[in-house]
Nucleic acid binder design. Sequence first.
DNA 1: TATAAAGTTTAGATTAGTCTAAAAATTTAT
DNA 2: ATAAATTTTTAGACTAATCTAAACTTTATA
Lengths: 217, 217
Amino acid sequence: MLSFTEENYLKAIYHLSDGGLKSVLTNEIAESIQTKPASVTDMVKKLALKNLITYEKYHGVKVTRQGKSQALAIIRKHRLWETFLVEKLGFDWGEVHDVAEQLEHIQSPLLIEKLDEFLGFPSADPHGHPIPDKNGKITIARQITLLEATEKKAIIRSVKDSSASFLDYLSKVGIYIGATVQVMERLAFDGSLEIKIDGKKKVYISREAGENILVTQ
Amino acid sequence: MLSFTEENYLKAIYHLSDGGLKSVLTNEIAESIQTKPASVTDMVKKLALKNLITYEKYHGVKVTRQGKSQALAIIRKHRLWETFLVEKLGFDWGEVHDVAEQLEHIQSPLLIEKLDEFLGFPSADPHGHPIPDKNGKITIARQITLLEATEKKAIIRSVKDSSASFLDYLSKVGIYIGATVQVMERLAFDGSLEIKIDGKKKVYISREAGENILVTQ
DNA sequence: TATAAAGTTTAGATTAGTCTAAAAATTTAT
DNA sequence: ATAAATTTTTAGACTAATCTAAACTTTATA
Ligand SMILES: [Mn+2]
Ligand SMILES: [Mn+2]
Ligand SMILES: [Mn+2]
Ligand SMILES: [Mn+2]
């Protein structure tokens, strides 16, 4: 069984590796987990001994099949708890991350099964991020950024940036998961977008915002 | 802020002290927390430095006002989570303790407030144990053991022993929190009780079981 | 391609929590 | 009241996770 700390490292590495595709360097991990490179070196050795990652001195780490499976289990818990907090307890979608960061480490397979059922087996968390199933399987729909969307209608599916500040901004503007939007115009000046939400509200969002919103068309 | 371990020690000491009344000895703590007396000595020094307990070498510890308040906050969380697990997730009352033992350490005042509200501000957990309010206040009704109950009707309020084995036994026999019971006879031989549950079912329970069931009359 | 810069690892120290074995204090029994 | 038994504390060691500073490797630059 992994410690709290080992779980946090493994999850961070998994995310940085884009789901196990890329290999990940020491400094990236250190930055993402807010620690020093020397500490990362120690920990990746430990995770490598447990066969969760492979580690090549000076050349970063790769997540193993086992590591992926464990990382996905943690991500599953994180996202189910976030869903619970928003759907059942009435949290705002920008408030849930830090609490879920703690709840994801609770050890009880039965609890997660029952929570999943209580929530009605949701397929995505409040940020639109897919919730892996019991076997770690993720059902991914092809998503593009709002910036890349053509002028046809698109549906908001998820956000790349889950920071409270960005989510607050979206709420204020009137953008939410599931909203139907249409890009009316791309301003030549700074790349900002004029969009219509649910056929009614017309708003302007920055190029950067557009890059952090994922949609399906 | 207290660490996971410090919280567990403080809660154990609070319980052993009967809510802060008695002073508690090193070996009792060691046994209750499944650790060695030497480790307890180290930890009580730390908790004393934080003014949560007072420590007199060789003569045990007492819980301070501050310590009580913090212990009650942890107990509040423990019991709210147990209530959630049973009421919302459908756990059996004997399955919840170990999970609540983890959940009680989640740090988020907002979470507990919202959970409390979601549960409808319950006053007791699945074992009938009172849930302290936000300020640590406990509303206690005078309870006696079923063994001490006279032959009038009594209502089952809580259990002294929350072990899975005892709770399983009670469920099998048909005893639950809120049931109306009447002691029909006390057997001279071994002190066991003949009781009628809800005016219908008649069962025999041991003296020891009777000592671990609390009722009001 | 040699040198500088950046990134990574190692060495050694620190803190929290735990343990065993030995020493000291308290309690119980004679 | 002394000795024996029990309880508690201290001393010293260990593991997990962290850090700083120094050494080493890789990459970028001239
Ligand atoms: Mn976490
Ligand atoms: Mn999320
Ligand atoms: Mn606990
Ligand atoms: Mn309980």
